[in-house]
Write a protein that binds this DNA or RNA. Structure first.
Lengths: 332, 332
DNA sequence: CTGAAAGCGCTAACAA
DNA sequence: TTGTTAGCGCTTTCAG
């Protein structure tokens, strides 16, 4: 391996000068610089970022713990984050927590061990007692993404409550009174907030929330499919359904299709989360779409600010969703 | 920051002993070990992987350069790779090349600077003259993924030629003679091979490949949509279409829908690449599905082998696709 | 079974 | 404008 020392020797300067031309950290005479550059060119020297990180005390690296890389939603998130970071000269290390605290702990520990300069976490349920305290303890700048947690740190996520309420209201406006709901994974804020939005819409019209109409799809499309299947094949089924995240939507649609029911004539449907290819689904889904791009870039902005030393009060940012009015709700 | 020295002092041993209990690299008396473990516990010590990497000469890190993180196909690939690596004790650093060599060069340079122990690359067009040689020069183990390049190194990708041929044949078997094709990005092997498969099917039946029926969607669904729109709204349009990757499929379907045509009655359709939610599309697509999981894990296997020092002849692995016979082709 | 000591390749005072 | 030097925190011979 060619080191800075080699380059220095060939250029007839000190290692420190080579370092400075490489980093532009102090003025170097044009001639000397050219000699150094020539030597670099000649040897094909590459800086060793590991050594650099150790000496400088920062790695220019940011860790991201995400809960499900296979979910296209998170795919876009990773992309947005990666983009914003690389623009700022950082690289991204990703880990998948599979929405499981133990797994998340492994991921974040490994990230911490690698001396990441900052960390973005989409917390799993239970995160606040196992992994987040440890991150805070090390003093690593942290921003939470997607889901909130009751802890004093920067957070950015989608607007949940009023978006879910708006979806539900839309169904009410169309005359539906028995509206089923399919919730996502229990124990995370987005599930709770969206469900609260659903409840608020109902009670706002003087309709009680009926337990039998509340389904838990956990995080799995399969579970959602089973639950919806059961509900929709029973007596006295609802005339409309609202799904609270994209995985639940898939499960719901499969169940409905499996029963030979059609949307919206047999049952109206609206959902939280949009799909890139929503236009190709049949029926076209009325949905509240998250602005994943903005969520990702905002998270990075907040993080960079902290990494630069800002220690003001934590920000909690909610990115609004967009209502896509298509026809699964029964409107034409 | 608490260092190994601190732990050593508290435990009343040398740093070297602490290192050995941490890594299990030599026998340590039970009592001493316990003292060390107590000190670690007490101080909340975390190993510094950066220092460790510098001293040991390896980072336990693998780089992945991917062409489009937003494409769900690559999302699953990243997931499979991350999983396999983390099982083997490595962490993944991802970079997005946006299917552009210059961008790819930046990504891989940064990965190389960070001393990754190995690298997985989904090469962009032009990779073989700009970025791959540099990787090879540094001696970093490399495996190519998704697309092949004419260079002597490990590669793993989907089967392209005969899968595309089979799709096209299926259309021919149903009596179609004028079959349009929508190609992906020019200059990458998967595009070429799949197109060759299409041609082989036609010429195998004595049908000439007609230029006007060959569309280039580049990498963009928008371009694909425009091209298909033009073709299908012209005179003498084909009776069937084959799309050669998922982005092209989206574009094609949008164009067809936009024209008010229906599949398969107005035009039959088959595609390379499946969608996770293919069942919810209307019509349900007849497709050749890649086994992304296997591609990812195989790539990691090959890489780990190289990283362990194997320097046998390069492997070129083709993972077969699965033919999903649904009804966009016109079969019931 | 354990410790001392020499680096890994680089950065950043401090001097000159 | 440049060089010298002392680390960064760890691994790993080599002795004991």
């Amino acid at each position: 391996m060619i080191t800075m020392g080699d380059v220095a020797r060939i250029a007839g300067v000190s290692a420190s000068t080579v370092s400075h031309v490489l980093n532009g950290t102090r003025k170097v005479d044009t001639v000397t610089r050219q000699r150094v550059e020539a030597a670099i060119e000649e040897t094909g020297y590459r800086r060793n970022v590991v050594a650099r990180s150790l000496a400088a005390g920062r790695t220019h690296t940011v860790g991201l713990s995400i809960s499900a890389l296979t979910n296209p939603y998170f795919g876009s998130l990773v992309h947005a984050v990666e983009q914003a970071l690389s623009d700022a000269g950082y690289v991204l290390i990703v880990g998948d927590s599979h929405d499981h605290v133990e797994s998340e702990k492994r991921v974040t520990d490994s990230l911490l061990d690698r001396q990441v300069d900052g960390m973005i976490v989409a917390p799993a349920a239970g995160s606040e007692r196992l992994t987040l305290p440890e991150i805070t303890r090390t003093g690593t700048p942290l921003v939470l993404i997607d889901r909130g947690v009751d802890i004093g740190c920067d957070q950015v996520g989608p607007e949940n409550f009023s978006s879910a309420r708006a979806l539900t209201k839309h169904l009410l406006d169309r005359g539906h009174r028995r509206i089923g709901v399919v919730r996502g994974l229990a124990g995370i804020s987005s599930t709770t907030e969206r469900f609260d939005g659903y409840c608020a819409a109902l009670t706002g019209r003087g309709i009680a929330v009926e337990d039998t109409l509340v389904l838990d799809g956990e995080s799995s499309t399969d579970v959602a499919e089973r639950e919806v299947h059961a509900l929709m094949s029973g007596e006295n089924r609802p005339t409309a359904l609202v799904s609270l995240n994209n995985a639940m939507t898939i499960g719901t649609l499969k169940a409905v299709r499996g029963l030979g029911l059609s949307i919206p004539s047999d049952v109206a449907f609206v959902c939280y989360d949009d799909f890139e290819w929503a236009d190709l689904f049949e029926p076209r889904l009325t949905a509240a779409a998250q602005d994943v791009e903005t969520i990702g870039t905002t998270a990075v902005e907040l993080l960079l600010r902290r990494m630069r030393g800002d220690d003001g009060a934590p920000h909690q940012i909610r990115v609004p969703t967009t209502f896509h009015h298509r026809n699964s709700c029964g409107c034409t």
